[in-house]
């Protein structure tokens, strides 16, 4: 390498340095540290001591019924909300894309949940679903009005709590997906639709054979980020069910990590680290699978 290009490289690295330092200190180092913690048995953060090194933390976490419940909850949440929210967002985006007047207004309306605070939304959901001494909540009012049995969605049966959580999550993640999908739809050159029209293509077939393939990169992007986001669910659950999630049986993996660190049962950084690494492994695997699938579809 001659001197000039070496200098050029140095300048480049210098520009990158602040970002690299920041990423190194706050992202890479903690990641490595957590990985190390997860193998240190009985680590005490106050005295900075541990008994030994091994897989015990993992064995403990994987046998902990709270953790298993959290994994079950998280997977259920992911499996329900990612496809549903992406699908519904696609429907709404197609609808928004095809209407003329009020389009901008409705786009704003659909985007509002994105800028609304999670906890505030949680409050609204409480009002809608929670049973109190004075009221059964708006949704129960409707259910009984139609002759159904009133259900306690916040403290009641598991399926009721889970469905509220899913509904809530879908509602919260939808705006971003709609935003991305409407812009993806708008970026499809209208000439393809004209070509399809001249060829006598039905509306449905045009959507399936032309629109969908053309916006598929964006859909895959949303699915991948959707998976990651749903696996990291925590604040939404707290907004609905309070901080004692283990008691409510509604804990998530991130919630479990938090509880192990700071909750009532807190003070176990080793278990928390092991759980965090397990979550990392799950998310990493699923993202890889996603990328493989989407990469294969793209190349087709």
């Amino acid at each position: 390498m001659d001197r000039k290009s070496l200098n050029g490289n140095l300048t480049g690295w210098l520009y990158l340095l602040p970002a690299l330092l920041f990423l190194g200190v706050f992202m890479v180092y903690p990641l490595i540290d957590v990985f190390i913690y997860s193998f240190e048995e009985g680590y005490n953060s106050a005295s900075q001591t541990y008994f030994g090194v091994g897989g015990y933390n993992y064995a403990y976490v994987l046998r902990d019924p709270y953790f298993l419940q959290a994994v079950k909850n998280t997977f259920l949440l992911v499996a329900v909300t990612v496809p549903l929210s992406t699908g519904i967002a696609l429907l709404i985006s197609v609808g928004l894309h095809s209407i003329g007047p009020l389009r901008r207004f409705l786009q704003t309306v659909y985007f509002l949940p994105y800028v609304t605070n999670t906890l505030a939304v949680g409050m609204v959901f409480m009002i809608l679903f929670r049973k109190t001494a004075y009221s059964d909540g708006l949704v129960n009012l409707l259910i009984t009005w139609f002759g159904g049995e009133s259900v306690d969605f916040i403290d009641g049966p598991y399926w009721a709590k889970m469905s509220v959580l899913c509904l809530y999550t879908i509602w919260v993640v939808m705006p971003f997906k709609i935003l991305i999908l409407t812009s993806a739809l708008a970026s499809v050159d209208p000439v393809y639709y004209r070509a399809a029209q001249v060829d006598g293509t039905s509306k449905f077939r045009t959507f399936m054979r032309i629109t969908l393939p053309m916006i598929s990169p964006m859909i895959f992007y949303l699915v991948i980020t959707g998976f990651i986001g749903a696996f990291k669910a925590y604040s939404d659950v707290v907004a609905l069910f309070g901080t004692d999630l283990n008691a409510a049986g509604m804990n998530t993996i991130v919630g479990y990590v938090y509880d192990m660190l700071y909750g009532d049962s807190g003070g176990y950084p080793s278990y928390a680290s092991a759980a965090a690494i397990i979550l990392f492994a799950i998310v990493f695997t699923i993202t890889c699978v996603n990328l493989l699938v989407s990469g294969h579809r793209m190349r087709r």
């Binding site: 000439v191 393809y192 004209r194 029209q197 001249v198 006598g200 054979r209 032309i210 053309m214």
Partner: peptide, 20 residues
């Protein structure tokens, strides 16, 4: 008549071939 019932073939300026 709509385009598909006219029995026409149309070649667009930028060809509009479906890229996928």
């Amino acid at each position: 008549l709509p385009p598909e019932k006219r029995g026409i073939g149309l070649v667009f300026q930028n060809y509009a071939l479906y890229p996928h």
